[in-house]
Design a binder for these strands. Structure first.
Lengths: 335, 335
DNA sequence: TTTATTTTAGCAAACATTTTCTTTAGAATT
DNA sequence: AATTCTAAAGAAAATGTTTGCTAAAATAAA
């Protein structure tokens, strides 16, 4: 079993002091070129790499950042994490992952631990329960301890932190307007997340775009049976010409209801989903979807954090970055 | 801004030595009950928590484990990670996540870094490229450095490490036999991962179960057009009565081809997918699927690692744990 | 009372670094 | 020849813990 060599051991082998070795490896001008070379040669030979834990202790940095994810099964968050990891890798930082499972308690517990010094900064998409109960003390606590926080995706509440997300209202307004522009009048919206922050915003955008004289058609329920009922009413009784969906579950329900009532997509019904591209492309018919560019959100969040880590005091106020979304037309909106 | 209090500061406040404080907090019998109480009280008042970096340096442990994931967009791996995180949390360990993107180079780079001492152990599902090129030196290197390695999901190759996965051959053989038992004779298999380790095993299981006199029907291609062609041949020309799919892409292709050729599922065609339960339940018709219990695989992997961390030398040989899979019948196999 | 024993707490080393401060030796200046 | 200066390297402190050893005080035994 190989064991890592230390400065002390190198020093002994070279018959010089520990500090000389350290300085030589860090190209200090205090050390002669000759010794530097001698030291570096032996260091390379033994594949010396400084013990990160010792370096961390000395520098009182951990070289790691914490990422809090509400729900990793949601491929959106998985892809955000992927972006975060890529950017962290580039910056030489380690990513510690925590999953809150949308629970406030778990989130608190995580934040509490993080104040102990495990990480230099935190990226968080706050849990659903946290938003609902509007309890943000644990996030303030992080800030109190001087740990920079960046909010991603779920950003519509007041906390002194940098943030990155999309314009939910604008996105859904634009999508709705796009359908109107094609001459479609009866547009519905299906959602299972109407009680959540982002859900509300998306519905707001939909409503905002519809002309005053047009009815709203909304199928909203987190309970499957109820959603099914409301969706069927919207499709069969109200006979909407298009449905915009705010999330995975509602998108799938619309597809199922259309199938069961032999409503053809896209001939009889246009559908726009808010799902990932993998799924959108593979469903039959493929679903036109709103791309949120999750990886970009991840790298962007990480970049905001890096900026803070490099000069935390320079700019006190939180910066906000809103990413553009993009409607990708596939089979479900063919005209 | 709050700042963390140290043993030294507590000691000064209490007018005792640092070691007394440390011992008191760790309930050393060397310290009198009176002092212990005094120390603990003040520690609680100041919310003292030992600096994890310093503890790590002293114990030459990092208290973290590394998880290498080939592809996080695959919800299977996302769910495994979820299981790992939950179990790590329970064990008081931090999880550092690395994404290899199925690339050998990235995997090497990660392992190289890990030998420096960032983690106490590693969980890895080896990248596709790594398996194909059969280059495992970087994994041996981890072992060399005394870092316990646990393989998960992709485990069919020879490396001295603990491992956890499913019985791919047995699972697919059982599923095939199940269909045969229902009187179905012409059974096909669709796959886009036939060149990968697990893909081969799954096909092997399928073949193993079929009676000698029965033909194999295999639609295998990683290229979409080619897969489409082969799938259509299987469904339309060969008129198979059932298709077993080894992965997400092939499952979706079978659904699309069936739809386009108005082949009704399950009346004309039974389909069994190898996809996650979220998707399986939400598709129309819902797809009978093979549940791999990803979260269990995650917790199981973590448990194997914990066992190693607690007594690394006790049992030298690698232990293997094979998880049971379960075929969940939904609409696509209704009789 | 003296010696032995036990309790209690402090000292100092150790973990692997980095960095400031000193020392030493040789060269340059007077 | 004496002094100053500079280059190079070492000593030591510091980061925050833990822990083996030592010292002192308190208690018990002789």
């Amino acid at each position: 079993m190989k064991n890592k060599i230390t400065l002390k051991e190198l020093a002994k082998l070279l018959n010089v002091s520990i500090s000389t070795v350290s300085k030589a490896l860090n190209d200090s001008p205090e050390i002669s070129a000759k010794t530097v070379e001698r030291v570096k040669e032996l260091a390379k030979l033994h594949n010396y790499r400084p013990n990160p834990v010792a370096v961390n202790l000395k520098s009182s940095k951990s070289g790691t950042i914490g990422v809090i994810i509400p729900n990793i099964s949601n491929s959106f968050f998985a892809r955000v994490l992927s972006g975060i990891e890529a950017e962290a890798q580039r910056a030489g930082l380690q990513v510690i992952t925590y999953i809150s499972n949308e629970k406030l308690d778990r989130e608190k517990q995580i934040c509490d631990m993080l104040t102990t010094g495990y990480v230099d900064g935190v990226l968080i998409a706050v849990a659903e329960e946290t938003q609902r109960k509007k309890e943000f003390d644990h996030l303030y606590q992080l800030v109190e301890y001087g740990i920079p926080v960046v909010l991603y995706d779920r950003i519509n509440f007041d906390i002194p932190a940098d943030r990155i997300g999309i314009d939910d209202v604008g996105t859904f307004a634009d999508v709705t307007k796009g359908l109107l522009a094609k001459g479609i009048r009866k547009i519905g919206i299906a959602t299972t997340i109407h009680h959540m922050g982002v859900g509300k915003l998306r519905i707001e955008g939909y409503k905002e775009a519809l002309p005053k004289n047009e009815n709203y058609y909304i199928a909203n329920s987190a309970r499957p049976e109820s959603l099914k009922e409301k969706t069927e009413k919207m499709l069969v009784k109200d006979k909407v010409e298009a449905v915009i969906c705010t999330d995975f579950e509602s998108t799938m329900q619309v597809y199922r209801s259309a199938f069961e009532h032999t409503i053809n997509i896209p001939e009889d019904l246009k559908v726009i989903g808010f799902i990932g591209k993998e799924l959108a492309n593979f469903l039959t018919p493929s679903i036109s979807y709103i791309d949120q560019f999750p990886e970009e959100m991840g790298t962007g969040a990480m970049q905001l954090l890096e900026a803070r880590l490099n000069n935390y005091n320079k700019d006190k106020s939180g910066t906000e970055r809103i990413l553009k979304t993009s409607l990708v037309h596939l089979e479900s909106t063919k005209f």
